[in-house]
């Protein structure tokens, strides 16, 4: 009875959905965490737990995969930021409050499977493919194919994660009120000062959400390296997949997953702390 009083009516009404979310979100997570502590290549939680899998990872070269994933994600996010900010800015200026709707158009490619789109790019870039085949037929030149290089992996990731950066960024940029911009200009600010003092800080919430979203997704990227990169680079998600499928070593895969979550989670928290969650979620 006392409990019912302390949790209040709001929480009580939210309880069913809360439980549902808890089961849907926490259950698989807990399972993965649990599995990461059982002996390698076993399949039962009910045995003695140990840190064996983690020790194995630290003695292996998995850290390379971590570094590749984090590095590729970081480069992707930076490139995305440089591409998306001008687009978001233009959209916000041209379409005003409808800009975010227009950005939805950029999500249309998401209706087609990522793998299909990536194979499309393979056909485009492959030797004798759309690009090189055309160059050869028309101009008789035959450059090296860019397929299976790091550059093409980054290209693929930028291409795939663009909507996830653009959408929140456009939202952020269109949140800057025109009059605030006018006011800064009226008070003597130059174009650059208006950007630095008003537009950038006021659109920061959207920019940060875009950064976080595309970074978290990009760290987990796997298809780009597989399909466009020709498996020259093994990102961490690929390691995890191998452990779970080919190697049939679920505990190792689980331990890798837990580490990945820890690394990404820590980075996200650090960024959020640096940028004051209050401001990002819009106190006003």
């Amino acid at each position: 009875m006392n409990l019912a009083k302390t949790i209040g009516p709001g929480t009580r009404h939210a309880l069913p959905i809360l439980l549902f979310l808890l089961v849907g979100f926490a259950a698989p997570l807990l399972a993965v965490i649990g599995f990461s502590f059982i002996p390698a290549r076993s399949f039962s939680l009910w045995q003695s737990w140990s840190l064996g899998n983690y020790i194995e990872i630290f003695n292996s070269t998995s850290y390379l995969s971590f570094l590749w994933s984090l590095g590729l994600a970081a480069v992707t996010v930076l490139i995305l930021a440089m591409i998306c900010y001008p687009i978001a800015y233009g959209l916000a200026r041209v379409f005003g409050k409808y800009a975010t709707l227009v950005t939805l158009l950029f999500t249309i490619p998401l209706f087609v499977s990522e793998n299909v789109r990536l194979y499309g790019w393979v056909l485009f870039f492959i030797k004798n493919g759309v690009l090189l085949g055309t160059l050869k037929a028309w101009f008789g030149i035959e450059p090296e194919s860019w397929l299976f290089t790091n550059g093409i992996i980054v290209f693929g990731m930028v291409y795939v994660y663009l909507p996830f950066m653009l959408f929140p960024m456009t939202l952020g940029v269109s949140m800057v009120p025109d009059q605030t911009r006018d006011a800064a200009f009226d008070l003597g600010a130059t174009r650059w000062q208006v950007f630095k003092e008003v537009e950038l800080p006021l659109s920061m919430p959207g920019i940060m959400i875009g950064f976080l979203l595309s970074f978290v997704l990009a760290v987990g990227a796997i298809a780009e390296a597989k399909v466009l990169g020709g498996q020259q680079i093994i990102p961490i998600s690929h390691d995890i997949e191998i452990a779970f499928t080919y190697a049939q070593n679920w505990p190792l895969g689980a331990a890798l997953s837990v580490l990945l979550m820890l690394v990404v989670g820590t980075m996200v928290l650090l960024v959020l702390r640096r940028f004051d969650l209050d401001a990002i979620l819009g106190r006003r």
């Binding site: 009120p177 009059q179 605030t180 006018d182 006011a183 800064a184 200009f185 009226d186 008070l187 003597g188 600010a189 130059t190 003092e197 008003v198 006021l202």
Partner: peptide, 15 residues
């Protein structure tokens, strides 16, 4: 930004 004039907006447009 070069005019010696300044406006107070209806929305105030504070930062």
């Amino acid at each position: 930004n070069k005019r010696p004039t300044c406006m107070v907006f209806q929305s105030l447009a504070l930062f």
